[in-house]
């Protein structure tokens, strides 16, 4: 995927602006390069397993215009990707601090409700 043209007012020499917690201010200014940048900010190097979850959560957000809580997130992943991946220990292995919050942050969505 190619980097799109960011608007001139973005911070950090062209990276899109984020909230104090690191979530993108505008979910539209996202691509895989931005995701890698956001993940590094969390100390994560993205593997194929991370990308699968990140694309899932971004697709979910864009399709339903809804952000799940952790319970819904796990259930939705079970449905779409199977129970090997739709469980808390697998997701914690990928996103150690907080699977839903970190996956959403890297996927460029707003902060999900119920995340602290």
């Amino acid at each position: 995927m190619v980097l799109t043209q960011w608007p001139a007012d973005t911070a950090d020499g062209g990276w899109p602006t984020t909230t104090a917690e690191g979530f993108l201010c505008d979910a539209g200014f996202w691509n895989e390069a931005v995701a890698i940048h956001l993940a590094r900010g969390l100390g994560l190097e993205l593997t194929a397993a991370h990308w699968e979850i990140i694309h899932f959560v971004r697709g979910y957000y864009l399709r339903y215009q809804h952000l799940p809580n952790m319970r819904m997130f796990v259930r939705a992943i079970q449905k779409e990707l199977g129970t090997d991946k739709g469980n808390a220990s697998y997701l914690h292995g990928l996103f150690p601090d907080s699977p839903l919050k970190q996956a959403c942050l890297i996927a460029g969505t707003p902060k999900p409700p119920g995340c602290i």
């Binding site: 979910y60 399709r63 339903y64 215009q65 809804h66 259930r75 939705a76 449905k79 779409e80």
Partner: peptide, 14 residues
């Protein structure tokens, strides 16, 4: 505020 129309499609996931 939120527009719920797209969310109805998520019901089947649950």
């Amino acid at each position: 505020g939120r527009v719920l129309n797209p969310v109805w499609d998520a019901l089947e996931l649950y």
